[in-house]
Design a protein around this nucleic acid. Structure first.
Length: 527
RNA sequence: GGCGCCAUCGUCCAGGGGUUAGGACGUGAGAUUCUCAAUCUUAAAACACGGGUUCGAUUCCCGUUGGCGCUACCA
């Protein structure tokens, strides 16, 4: 384990920042933690991490933050850690972790420590560290920087509604902040479920340094008593993240901007444990064309999509490196084309600009084209065979059409949609007789929503599609025909569900979104 | 609503107290080409607004506006 970095001098500095009442308890001696002289994070080897959650497809944002972390570590001879934050069992997707590994390897970011390579600070999967979080929660409970809260979800919801009605900030009312020992004992005796909350000082403020923005201050009045430990015994992000970052000796927390407002909670937690605070770097958020935070509704965000659609990892990485700047302007004669190695050599994380960059597919495609044109014909062919014309893909498709052709030459007639980037059916193709355009598009949007949430197997898709049709009184035939038109561009195709399974979830959903978007633009144009 | 972050062409980036505000993508025009791409030439296109500070602000400060994020027993 890396050396404890606590010292009284840093502690008292922190005390001023975090509020006296909070700091005055000097919890550490009582708890018998090892104290060492001041040192370390500043002089320790650089260690950074990315901490994706396995809740679905690996996200471009993860690749972006991963890239910055990777570059930062490589430039300084530091370590780059991959930690899986799987503490939310309700959103957990079992296939997700492997997809994250695969996607990160695909783009070319390799990690020094992680669940699949182990390392000295494991385990690197938070679900395997629950005992650690439990112990640390005990520390906070003992030094009274956290408390048990027995409020029910309904009570909290009611309180929140009241606050909203009164136009007050919605925050925990503090009901359980000062429960007597007797009450707590009685509640525990009665086995009432509880969470553990951070006891944010009622006065004062917390200031921390964002390496890109400078000092940022939050008044404690605006920092809620964050739940640290859920009633199911799993920690929330905030607790697990701070504990792990400390235990894993992370020196620089490089993460997305959305975490700025919870950083004071994290700083307070470091203080409650008596730990030195790492450096914080908050990267700007990637945006949709409309400037909102990048989302799958408006953009392909799955790295699986980019791979299956035939983007080259080096182009994606290059493009990500363009987001926010960071590379010197004159590199490679200002062509904006550079490799990972060149980024490690020249990239300056300090120079990242703070406006959220729009993730613009148009420019990514241009860049990707540049990389494709620069390949040797052999490499280009090899790339095709590895992706859009892989043996695995081709043989699956072959299986779907064998009984439907009379000559091998008809292969292309039945399968073109598997190899096209976009298909856009005309109204006479997708619009069912007796249905209006409006209701059809609305139904298509529902298909999209349902399929997004459906496991990508024929059985699951069939069940989901039929359930949707029944609920909406759409005949199975109409329902499937609409999806067929959107997915294949025509009214005839190999078995729909099997085709869509082979084509892939990410690409199918993208095709559906593009259809909806295209129709919306068409409608707008007519007006 | 509250809190926080942010603000240069449509988009991604440079720049910086005095500049014709630069490059790239995209778009328009032209050239080349059997077509389409690619390529070449070229054009249009930006400092959100209002106050300061200053001889002089796009640049520094303040405010406004706008955008975004957070505001969960999600991360």
């Amino acid at each position: 384990m890396c050396a404890e970095s606590f010292s009284w001098s840093s502690w008292s500095t922190l005390a001023k920042e975090t509020g006296r009442a909070f700091a005055a308890r000097k919890p550490l001696i009582r708890l018998g933690l090892t104290l060492m002289t001041k040192q370390t994070i500043s002089s320790a080897p650089i260690r950074v991490r990315i901490a994706p959650s396995p809740t679905g497809d690996p996200h471009v944002g993860t690749a972006y933050i991963g890239l910055i972390n990777y570059i930062y570590a490589r430039q300084r001879g530091g370590q780059f850690v991959l930690r899986i934050e799987d503490t939310d069992r309700t959103r957990f997707v079992s296939s997700s972790e492997q997809m994250i590994f695969d996607a990160l390897k695909w783009v070319g970011l390799s990690w020094d420590e992680g669940p699949d390579v182990s390392g000295p600070y494991g385990p690197y999967r938070q679900s395997e560290r629950t005992e650690i979080y439990r112990e640390h929660t005990e520390i906070l409970l003992a030094n009274e920087t956290a408390y048990r809260c027995f409020c029910t979800a309904e009570e909290l919801e009611a309180s929140r509604r009241e606050q909203m009605a009164a136009k007050q900030p919605t925050r925990y009312a503090g009901t359980c902040r000062a429960l007597t020992a007797e009450t707590i004992a009685a509640n525990l005796e009665a086995e009432k479920p509880f969470v553990v909350r951070l006891k944010v000082p009622s006065e004062g403020s917390t200031t921390f340094t964002d390496e890109l923005r400078g000092a940022i201050t939050f008044d404690h009045f605006n920092v809620d008593d964050q739940v640290l430990m859920k009633s199911d015994g799993f920690p929330t992000y905030h607790l697990a993240n701070v504990v792990d970052d400390h235990l894993m000796c992370i020196t620089d927390v490089i993460r997305a901007e959305e975490w700025i407002s919870s950083t004071p909670k994290h700083v307070l937690l470091y203080g409650a444990f008596g730990w030195e605070v790492p450096k914080f770097w908050h990267m700007p958020l990637l945006r949709n064309l409309d400037k909102s935070k990048i989302s799958k509704r408006k953009n392909p965000v799955s790295l699986v999509y980019y791979r299956q659609a035939g983007f080259l990892p080096q182009a994606l990485l290059n493009f990500l490196g363009l987001m926010g700047g960071g590379m010197p302007n004159e590199i490679n004669n200002g062509t904006e084309k550079f490799t990972l190695a060149e980024m490690i050599e020249h990239f300056e994380v300090k120079n990242i600009r703070l406006g959220g960059p729009v993730f613009d597919l148009t420019k990514l495609k241009w860049l990707n084209g540049e990389y494709i044109r620069a390949m040797t014909p052999g490499d280009f062919y090899a790339a095709l065979r590895e992706t859009v014309l892989s043996d695995a893909y081709l043989s699956e498709i072959a299986g779907l059409i064998q009984t439907r052709v009379e000559t091998l030459g008809q292969f292309g007639n039945l399968t073109h949609f598997f190899f096209a980037d976009d298909v856009m059916p005309a109204a006479e193709v997708f619009l069912p007789k007796k249905r209006t355009l409006e209701e059809t598009l609305a139904f298509a949007a529902e298909q999209l929503a349902v399929l997004e949430a459906t496991e990508w197997t024929k059985e699951a898709l069939e069940a989901a599609m039929k359930a949707l049709g029944e609920g909406k009184e759409w005949a199975v035939k109409e329902n499937f025909m609409l999806l067929r038109a959107i997915a294949t561009g025509g009214t005839m195709s190999p078995p729909l569900l099997e085709s869509v399974v082979v084509f892939g979830k990410a690409r199918t959903l993208d095709r559906m979104r593009r259809f909806l978007e295209g129709q919306k633009k068409l409608a707008g144009g007519k007006k």
